[in-house]
């Protein structure tokens, strides 16, 4: 099958990206979304050895919180089931943060350093401060087994949409906002007004609806408009939890689909 995909980035920064994919079927788009969420392995703390815990929280509660800390997962370094050891040692009066975790692998560290684990005190009546010391094993696992291993958070897609100008709006009717969210492909530039930072309207341009306050009546004043989906074109929104870049998430997800297809093909031939 000679399918040609066309990918175009709409916006991107460190942890989020929005991109348009053309030529993709709804089934494939959803498979990709699900693979990004559940099938890209990341490191997460899975078992904890408590050496000392005189804080006000149970060991189990602390362990749960540690598990939810995203850890950076370098590409092609680990396989599923691999283990990295981390350690934490904090004494009150101080708050233990995710950034206090030290790992035995130079490329593995907490993706965010400012997640509070627990506030440790030194009560006046006590002879010693509260203390938390532990060792933890982070395991490479998949989101389908535990949500702490999800590399993608808030992953979704919408159809690319386009606006058709039907007619002029009624001259004496009240103008009402017409709210639309997502990205539109401009096909009626002659009726559109320039919106923030997007320059002169031009047919074929991709316009994020935020640029006109998600309100079509601001982009096409005094027009009666309708909205259509563009076939086989999806705008993906992918946000990473910091364990890897959006690019790695998406390519790993595509690879995981390809791998399974290869496996099936070989199994069928036997």
């Amino acid at each position: 099958m000679t399918e040609n995909f066309e990918v175009q980035f709409i916006d991107r920064d460190e942890r989020t990206a929005r991109f348009l994919v053309r030529g993709v079927s709804p089934a494939f788009a959803n498979g990709l979304r699900r693979a990004i969420i559940a099938d890209v392995p990341t490191l997460s703390i899975d078992s904890v050895r408590i050496i000392e815990n005189s804080s006000v929280m149970f060991d189990e509660q602390i362990s749960l919180r540690l598990g939810l800390v995203p850890l950076t997962t370098p590409p092609n370094e680990f396989e599923e089931g691999d283990i990295v050891t981390l350690a934490l040692d904090v004494e009150g009066p101080e708050t233990a943060y995710s950034g206090d975790l030290r790992s035995d692998h130079e490329l593995v560290e907490p993706a965010d350093t400012n997640i509070p684990i627990i506030e440790l005190k030194y009560p006046e009546t006590a002879d010693s401060p509260q203390r938390l010391e532990l060792e933890a094993d982070a395991v490479m696992g998949r989101g389908r087994d535990h949500a702490k291993n999800q590399g993608g958070v808030a992953v979704g897609y919408r159809h690319l949409q386009t606006v058709v100008v039907e007619d002029d709006a009624d001259e004496y009717s009240d103008s009402e906002p017409e709210i639309l969210r997502g990205v539109i492909e401009e096909r009626a530039a002659e009726h559109a007004v320039a919106t923030d930072g997007t320059g002169e309207p031009e047919n074929g341009a991709l316009v994020a609806t935020e640029t006109f306050d998600n309100d079509l009546s601001k982009r096409y004043p005094d027009k009666e408009v309708s909205v259509r989906d563009v076939d086989d074109a999806f705008v993906f929104h992918v946000e990473s939890d910091g364990s890897m870049s959006v690019d790695e998430l998406v390519t790993n997800a595509a690879d995981s689909l390809a791998e399974r297809a290869t496996e099936l093909e070989q199994a069928v031939q036997l």
């Binding site: 399918e3 990918v7 595509a254 390809a258």
Partner: peptide
């Protein structure tokens, strides 16, 4: 094939 094409395009 599709997955690989997509990855390359991406």
């Amino acid at each position: 094939q599709k997955s690989e094409n997509f990855r390359d395009a991406f």
